[in-house]
């Protein structure tokens, strides 16, 4: 099956991606995503019945660390790249709704 992405669909994905796109970008994105997804369609030709998904390139299990403290960052370093801070906290505009 072929996915026909409308401009509205792309706008929804942009909202989900938290990307503000201007009209020109939306147009281009609609066209380009359509082309790429059209190409990706060829995966549906492959018989994957009974094949386990492979999420890791090297499949290891049981990688743990001991519950032991390691050095932390001083607050100054933690906040050093913050766009807005009062020296103690990260500051964000007053939150009224779930982002």
């Amino acid at each position: 099956m072929s996915v026909q992405l409308s401009r509205d669909d792309v706008a929804k994905v942009a909202l989900l991606s938290r990307l503000k796109l201007d009209d020109g970008e939306l147009d281009r994105m609609t066209e380009q995503l359509g082309a790429i997804l059209g190409y990706v369609e060829r995966l549906s030709e492959v018989d994957t019945e009974g094949i386990e998904p492979m999420a890791h390139a090297v499949e290891r299990t049981n990688v743990f660390r001991a519950d032991v403290e390691t050095p932390m960052l001083p607050r100054e370093a933690a906040l050093s790249n913050a766009p807005k801070t009062d020296g103690q906290y990260f500051l964000v505009p007053q939150i009224f709704d779930a982002g």
Binding site: L19, K20, P93, F96, D97, G99
Partner: peptide, 10 residues
């Protein structure tokens, strides 16, 4: 708002 902050920054 928050969503706009995210979307514009990105």
């Amino acid at each position: 708002d928050m969503i706009d902050l995210y979307a514009r920054s990105r």
